[in-house]
């Protein structure tokens, strides 16, 4: 199929493994889905210590189930990416371990305290779910199918995150303060979740033209702020003065210059201090069990 035809036909769930798609499409789709899959793994990596550090048996079970779901989402997404025929799952997981694989900005930062967990489990997952719901209409059918299942499961994650946040927000004075501090630290990163404004986004245009993406970064950020900013306020969180956010004609406008884009691009290139820490930890976990993968695939002896 010529690229022109691909663009003309592009629509929800239009293309599958039996279509002879142009290389540009397959590479762009692989890049997008691989990024998404990597993010599931790295998000799970960030949350896994809180299975142990949960302050009750119920929370522990929920955190374990959530981390399990994220790995399950990674499994679905790598399969959807693999089916494009550009890279195998093994290659993608190797790339993640050796620092070539890219993933969401928020998962490059260390998370060490329980009161930080709603920042990922409510806000970041909420932002991710907002985006994922739009990907149900992506043009790569296996990706859309993965999204059906992921969106089905994900509701529990956000509710679990909100449940923890509500507990802290209605807890002791100190718990409320710690929650506010965590919010102030994470809020700018959360605002950067959807990347810079559209004109600075390198891959968006093509991805939109071939139907991989159905909403722009700006539209998604709007949709996120509309739902989640009032939520933060509802739980008594004070929105930091910076970055400045104005309301204009029912829209939230974020003063982009107030955000640290230098850091964002360092993160995007896996070049931030936290990036190294997270990737190295993931790499040693991945390498430590390479022998098992070799044994079960019959590559030894």
């Amino acid at each position: 199929m010529e690229l022109q035809e691909c663009k003309a036909r592009a629509g929800p769930r239009e293309f599958g493994p039996h279509d002879d798609l142009p290389r540009e499409y397959r590479e762009a789709a692989t890049r997008m889905i691989q990024f998404h899959a990597n993010s599931e793994i790295m998000g799970a990596y960030l949350e896994r210590p809180f299975i142990r550090q949960s302050p009750s048996l119920d929370r522990k079970l929920a955190f374990s189930a959530k981390v399990q779901d994220e790995i399950g989402h990674g499994q679905l997404l790598y399969r959807a990416a693999e089916s494009l025929g550009v890279k195998t799952r093994e290659e993608m997981l190797d790339e993640l371990a050796n620092g070539e694989g890219k993933f969401l900005n928020c998962f490059h930062y260390p998370m060490t305290e329980w009161w930080e967990t709603p920042m990922i489990a409510f806000f970041v997952d909420g932002a991710a779910m907002r985006r994922q719901a739009t990907i149900k209409r992506t043009s790569w059918e296996p990706y859309a199918h993965a999204m059906d299942k992921i969106c089905f499961e994900e509701g529990f994650h956000i509710k679990h995150g909100e449940h923890i946040m509500r507990e802290l927000a209605t807890g002791s004075r100190r718990e409320q303060q710690l929650l506010q501090e965590a919010f102030e630290e994470w809020w700018p990163r959360i605002l950067q979740f959807f990347g810079p404004t559209d004109d600075e986004s390198t891959h968006h245009d093509f991805a939109a033209e071939v139907g991989l993406k159905t909403m722009s970064n700006d539209e998604l950020r709007q949709a996120f702020l509309n739902a989640y900013l009032p939520k933060a306020t509802e739980y008594g969180l004070e929105i930091p003065d910076e970055p400045r956010i104005r309301e204009e004609d029912g829209r939230y406008v974020v003063e982009e210059d107030d955000l640290d884009w230098e850091e964002f691009w360092a993160v995007a290139n896996n070049d931030y201090a936290g990036s190294h820490e997270q990737i190295d930890a993931r790499a040693s976990a991945h390498d430590a069990v390479a022998w098992v993968r070799a044994t079960i695939s019959g590559e030894t002896a």
């Binding site: 793994i41 799970a44 990596y45 896994r48 299975i51 374990s64 981390v67 399990q68 790995i71 399950g72 990674g74 499994q75 790598y78 993931r282 976990a285 430590a288 069990v289 098992v292 993968r293 079960i296």
Partner: peptide
């Protein structure tokens, strides 16, 4: 969790 040999065995 997040450290098992494969994604399936992790789950």
């Amino acid at each position: 969790q997040v450290r098992a040999p494969t994604l399936e065995s992790d789950l």
